[in-house]
Write a protein that binds this DNA or RNA. Structure first.
Length: 273
DNA sequence: ATATGAGCCTGTATGC
DNA sequence: TGCATACAGGCTCATA
């Protein structure tokens, strides 16, 4: 489900409500998600003040006063929501945190591609972030950087956009949306992308992601923020999930294609190969 | 090194 | 109705 705007939205919805609280109890409903090392998690972070809630790539991170952090990835179908004290566990609730104010923080993930774990804050970098590319809003994301990454790559730009070793946070929805805004055909190979197209692409990624964050993310099916609210960028999608409909720019028919098994949407009139 | 494909899971929608 | 297939916001690993 969640790409950068959804995780950012989740962060925004949780931070003011979590900072200053602590976790009184952890209930595990299942031992194995993508990483099956839960038991330590409880002892690491119990009764420690929450200092910060932040995002890196598509990871949500909660920092505790003892220099441990909870790191959460929502995979495709994950939800991480605040619930009242009276909340009763539902299907696919995997971990339930009881907070110091009585409310509950619930990790639910139908497909179980997500993960949740705790580590020393200082070890997150080498454990999870070492091989990640740049944040889309980083000043380091420049024409030179991206040009260097695309040089010699005989891979469709759509796949390269989704490559976390180059840029993080852009998933299947926002890859199609960014390419449409930049007027670049998704099949165009990295090696064939011009400098002006790269500049346009960087700008488009930032515009699309910013608007999506403002709208609270995109909800196709599963996504809700920490307050159980869906995202409204769905109504602003220009190509994604609009196969067969008219392009909002030029009225051509939106094409649905496939890259590495993932659906891609584009306008073959606006986006020249 | 780079490129492709399978696999991890469950739920839902579609077609026969 | 039943059953089989395809597909869904991600990521990692094994194979060419």
């Amino acid at each position: 489900m969640p790409e950068l705007p959804e995780v950012e939205t989740l962060k925004n919805s949780l931070e003011s409500k979590l900072i200053g609280l602590s976790i009184k109890n952890v209930e595990f409903k299942r031992e194995n998600l993508r990483y099956k090392l839960f038991p330590d998690l409880a002892t690491d972070i119990l009764n420690m003040n929450i200092l910060d809630v932040r995002r890196r790539a598509k990871y949500l991170i909660i920092d505790f006063a003892n220099n441990y952090s909870l790191i959460v990835h929502l995979g495709m179908s994950g939800r991480f929501t605040l619930q009242p004290a009276s909340y009763e566990a539902k299907k696919h609730d995997h971990v339930i945190f009881e907070l110091s104010n009585g409310s509950k923080l619930v990790f639910n993930d139908t497909r179980r591609f997500g993960m949740i774990y705790s580590f020393k804050t200082s070890s997150l970098e080498e454990k999870f972030f070492n091989n990640l590319g740049l944040e889309p809003f980083s000043e380091l994301l420049t024409l030179e950087y991206l040009k260097n990454k695309l040089t010699g790559r005989r891979v469709p730009i759509k796949n390269l956009l989704m490559d976390n070793k180059i840029i993080v946070g852009v998933g299947n929805i926002y890859a199609s949306e960014s390419l449409h805004l930049a007027k670049i055909h998704p099949d165009k190979l990295g090696i064939d992308i011009s400098s002006s197209e790269i500049e346009s692409l960087i700008n488009s990624i930032r515009v699309v992601l910013s608007k999506a964050i403002t709208a609270g993310g995109t909800t196709l099916k599963d996504f809700v923020n920490g307050d159980n609210k869906p995202g409204y960028f769905t109504q602003q999608l220009t190509v994604y999930a609009r196969g067969g409909q008219e392009c909002l720019n030029c009225s051509s028919v939106i094409i649905k294609a496939k890259h590495s098994g993932r659906a891609t949407f584009y306008c073959k009139n606006c986006q020249k190969a």
